[in-house]
């Protein structure tokens, strides 16, 4: 590219800016460690998460059991590593499902407007008025506590937020000249919505997705804590906290370690989400 380069807003530099952002780097390192933990749990975890050891119940951390044993004599460190699998899997699948479904519905509402938009926006507003946890609780209670139903329930609670985001962005996009140009080239509404509008609002949806991933993981843990999570004996972070909660007077560490795991995950995901948001925000200082 010789003459006439780089005028106008530098859209492609979003990822360049994101790469150098310290928050994103820190968040990515945390999340990468979590993902490796989850993927390679069978090799990383020192013990079978469900095996009952011969040591004392609720043992304090020791060299053999870094984070101690739970009330059944199971190794807490191994259970937390296996718990990462459930939390990340549920969080990622639910968020991706919500992102795809919510964005598609939101783009349709924003693009067509009129009666379609009024119906979709009305339903979205109703769904948004429920607290997320109450909604998740209701759905899991109705559907039954299995991993598939928990994913579905969390995805449904997250969908309205993506609908609203995609609708708003599409409304702004619809007034742009290149949409009219696409119509003048004979492209169908489907093509304009999903080949032209969608790539333009992808940035915002991904940023929102990274922030909602944290919420989804937190919701999964909360559901597990109140006993509506993936049923025992499967190790989940919320489930371990719940057990630890019952023995808080005997050994409070049992509740503290999985809570820390959740805390670190939240910090990692929010660092990435906030960093991405700053990197995509044209008003943010360069």
């Amino acid at each position: 590219m010789s003459a006439a380069t780089t005028v106008g807003p530098a859209r492609v530099s979003t990822w360049t800016r994101a790469r150098g952002n310290p928050a994103i780097i820190a968040g990515s390192i945390i999340c990468l460690i979590l993902v490796i933990m989850a993927l390679f749990a069978p090799w990383i975890a020192p013990y079978d998460p469900n095996k009952q050891m011969l040591g004392p119940q609720l043992a304090d951390p020791s060299r053999a059991h870094w984070l101690g044993l739970d009330s059944f004599g199971r190794d807490v460190f191994s259970r937390i590593i296996w718990g990462a699998r459930i939390s990340l899997w549920v969080g990622v699948v639910a968020t991706v499902m919500a992102m795809i479904a919510g964005s598609a519905i939101g783009i349709v509402a924003g693009y067509f407007g009129g009666a379609i938009d009024r119906v979709i926006s009305g339903v979205t507003d109703i769904l948004l008025s429920f607290p997320q946890l109450v909604m998740g609780l209701l759905l899991v209670a109705v559907l039954g506590a299995s991993i598939g139903n928990i994913i579905l329930a969390i995805a449904i609670t997250a969908v309205p937020a993506f609908i609203r985001l995609a609708r708003g962005s599409t409304l702004a996009m619809r007034e742009r000249d290149f949409i009219d140009a696409g119509r003048a080239l004979g492209f169908s509404d489907m093509r304009i919505m999903f080949a032209h509008v969608a790539p333009n609002i992808l940035d915002e949806i991904i940023v929102m997705g990274s922030l909602w991933l944290a919420t989804a993981i937190r919701t999964e843990s909360t559901l597990a804590f109140i006993g509506l999570g993936v049923p025992p004996p499967t190790a989940t972070w919320g489930g371990i906290i719940r057990e630890g909660f019952e023995y808080l007077n005997d050994n409070y560490l049992l509740a503290v370690f999985p809570s820390l795991a959740i805390l670190i995950t939240m910090i990692g995901l929010n660092l990435i989400g906030d960093g991405l948001r700053d990197a995509t925000d044209p008003r943010a200082p360069q």
Binding site: F178, A181, A184, G186, F187, H196, P199, L202
Partner: peptide, 27 residues
């Protein structure tokens, strides 16, 4: 409209006033 989609861009081309905004910025 479906029949017109086959005509627009195919048998009639159109050029607009605003070249700065008539192209999709991310493609």
């Amino acid at each position: 409209d479906a029949q017109m989609e086959k005509i627009r861009g195919n048998r009639i081309g159109m050029v607009f006033q605003e070249p700065m905004t008539s192209l999709n910025p991310v493609l």
